[in-house]
Design a protein around this nucleic acid. Structure first.
Lengths: 311, 311
DNA sequence: GTGAAAGCGCTAACAC
DNA sequence: GTGTTAGCGCTTTCAC
C-alpha cells in the first residue's frame, strides 16, 4: 500500500519512505501492473479510437492530435480499424470494451443496432466523430456532410459556373455529400452534375482519370473533388490537356492539405480542422471522466471554403 | 469456469451448455473483462507501437498494416507518439509496459540506456523498425539509411549528373541519409552537394522554397528529396521557373507515394515497402508469442529506386 | 464435460 | 504517515 502511494500520490508519503521506494524501484526495475490497478480501481487511463481505415489519410490529423491530447493527461490510445464494415465495427467495439477503456471515440454516426446497444450499455463516455445527427449515442464532434455538399455547390455556382461535376470517393459519407451537391445544383436549375466515383486508393491518378472520364460526356466548367489529392490530379490532367485553370475549368478540393497553398495554380479547398476534432474529442472524454458533465457535448466544428486560385 | 470455457474454447463445452451461455450473454450484455483475464493468464493480446509522430505520414502505411495484421490474430494495437524525444520515449515505454503488452514495436534503433534496459527487462518480444544495426534489442525489421543515401547518390551520378543537391527533413535518420549521400558524392570526386534542411511540416511548400534556396548558391543538375511531397514541390517550382525536368534538373523523391506515378513528369522515387514492414513486425511478435522462436528476426526489407521520368 | 479452490497484483476502505 | 483487510473478475490447476 505504501509503495502504491509513493508512486501514485508521492505527496502523501514521507520524504524518507519515498526515497526508499524509488531506490527499490530503480534497483529492481519494477513497473506497476496496470491490469491489476485497472481491475481494482475501474480506471484504466485507456481510450479507444475506431476509424474506418488509416490508408485514406483522412484521420491522420485527428488521431495525431487525439493521441497527443490524451497523452498530456496520462491516457493511452488504442487504435482500431473497422474497414468500413458495420459487422467488423461491432466485433471491434465488443472486443475493445473488454479492456474497460475510460472512453471511446468512434467515427461516424451510423452504427449497427448492436454497436449502439454495446456502447450505451458500457456506460463509458462515447464521442462520435466527423458527421452530424441530432441524436448521438452520447457526445458528438463533427459537421454536416449534407451542408458541405450544398455549400460547395453554392460556392461554385455563385462564381458563375453552370456545368458542374463531382469526383467523389466510394464511401457512405462522401456519397451523402455528393447527393446534396447534386440536389443543390438541381434546386438552382443547373445541369445535373455528372458524378465520377473513385473506388481505388490511388487518389492522384484517380483525379486524372476522373477528369478524363467526365470530359467524355461533354464540357464542364467546374469540378468538386472529394480530396485535395484528387484535385491535384485534376490540375495535372488539365495542364496536360491544355485546359486553363481556373479560366476554363474551376477546381475545388477537400481537406486543405499542406500542399494546397503552394500548388500552381494554388488550390481552393473545403477545409475542416481535423486537429481540432481530435483535441475536442479528447477533452470530451477527459472532462467527463473528471466529473465535469454537461458542457458542449455536441460540437459542430464546421468547415470553411478556402478561396485560392483554382476556383 | 464453464462460462469462460464456452467463450474461449467453445469446442470443449457441450452444445446445450454453450447455447445457454450464449443466451445469457446476449440477454445481459455481458462483455468479458480483459483486465482480469490478462492479469491471471499473463496474456493481454495487446501490442504497443511507438512512433515519433504521425504527422510526418511516414508511418501511416506501417501502422495500417501492422494494425490489420495484428487484428487478424485477435490482437489490439496501442499507439504512442514519442515526438522524437528520447526522454518521452523512455517515459512512454515505461507507462506502456505497465499494461503488460504481449509485444512492442518501436521505431528506430537508437534509444536511451533506460529504454533499452526497460525493454530488455520486460522479457516481451521487441521489434525495432525502419533502421539498421547488427545489435538490435531483440528483433529488427528495417533498412540502412546509410546505404540509401549512398545508392541515391550513385543513381544520380550514374545518370551523368555532376552538381548534386539534397533537400532533407530535420530528423536524425534523414541526417544520416544525407551525410552518406554527401560522402558518396565526395568519394566520386563530385562537387560537395549543398544541403537544404526543412524544419517545417509543409512539405510541398518546403520543396518549392528549398529549390529556390539551392539555386541561389549556383546551378545544380539533380536534387535528392527526403519525401515525394517535397519532390513534388520541387517539380512545381521548377515549372514556375521554366526549368526543364529532367532535361536541366533531375528530381529524385522518397517514399513512392501514390501520386508519384501520375505526376507530370512522373516522379522517380526511392521506395520502401512500409506495408510489408508492418506485416513482418506483426508476424515477428505473433510467431514469438506462439512459441516459434528463431526464424528471421533480423529482416532487411531493403529499398528500390523506382525509375520514372523525373530522374 | 463440469466444477471447486486459489491467486494474479493491485487499490478502496478503514484503522491507528 | 503507514498498515491491514478484502476483493476486483478472470483462468490455472486439479478433481470428479
Amino acid at each position: 500500500m505504501t509503495v502504491s502511494r509513493a508512486l501514485k500520490t508521492p505527496e502523501r508519503v514521507s520524504a524518507d519512505t519515498l526515497q526508499r521506494v524509488r531506490d527499490a524501484v530503480a534497483r529492481t526495475g519494477y513497473v506497476s501492473n496496470g491490469l491489476a490497478g485497472g481491475l481494482r480501481s475501474a480506471r484504466t487511463l485507456l481510450v479507444a479510437a475506431l476509424v474506418p481505415a488509416l490508408r485514406s489519410h483522412l484521420y491522420d490529423a485527428t488521431i495525431e492530435s487525439l493521441g497527443a491530447a490524451l497523452a498530456a493527461d496520462g491516457y493511452h490510445l488504442l487504435l482500431g480499424q473497422t474497414e468500413h464494415s458495420p459487422q467488423q465495427e461491432e466485433d471491434l467495439v465488443r472486443a475493445v470494451l473488454g479492456r474497460r477503456p475510460d472512453g471511446i471515440v468512434i467515427t461516424g454516426v451510423r452504427h449497427s443496432k448492436g454497436t449502439r446497444a454495446l456502447l450505451l450499455a458500457s456506460g463509458i463516455p462515447v464521442v462520435e466523430l466527423n458527421d452530424w445527427t441530432p441524436t448521438p449515442i452520447d457526445m458528438l464532434v463533427g459537421f454536416s456532410h449534407e451542408q458541405m455538399g450544398r455549400d460547395a455547390c453554392g460556392y461554385l455556382a455563385d462564381k458563375g459556373h453552370r456545368r458542374l461535376a463531382v469526383i467523389a470517393t466510394d464511401n457512405e459519407r462522401s456519397q451523402r455529400r455528393t447527393e446534396s451537391f447534386v440536389a443543390a445544383a438541381k434546386a438552382r436549375r443547373l445541369t445535373t452534375p455528372p458524378v465520377h466515383v473513385l473506388s481505388a486508393s490511388t487518389l492522384h491518378g484517380g483525379g486524372r482519370a476522373g477528369l478524363a472520364a467526365l470530359l467524355e460526356h461533354g464540357p464542364i466548367d467546374a469540378v468538386y473533388c472529394g480530396s485535395d489529392m484528387v484535385a491535384l490530379g485534376v490540375l495535372t490532367e488539365a495542364r496536360a490537356r491544355g485546359i486553363e485553370v481556373p479560366g476554363t475549368l474551376a477546381v475545388l478540393g477537400s481537406g486543405d492539405l499542406d500542399f494546397a497553398a503552394s500548388t500552381s495554380p494554388s488550390l481552393s479547398s473545403v477545409r475542416v480542422d481535423f486537429a481540432r476534432v481530435g483535441t475536442l474529442a479528447a477533452r470530451c472524454i477527459t472532462d467527463r471522466v473528471a466529473g465535469n458533465d454537461g458542457a458542449d457535448t455536441l460540437v459542430d466544428v464546421g468547415f470553411t471554403i478556402v478561396e485560392r486560385e483554382s476556383a
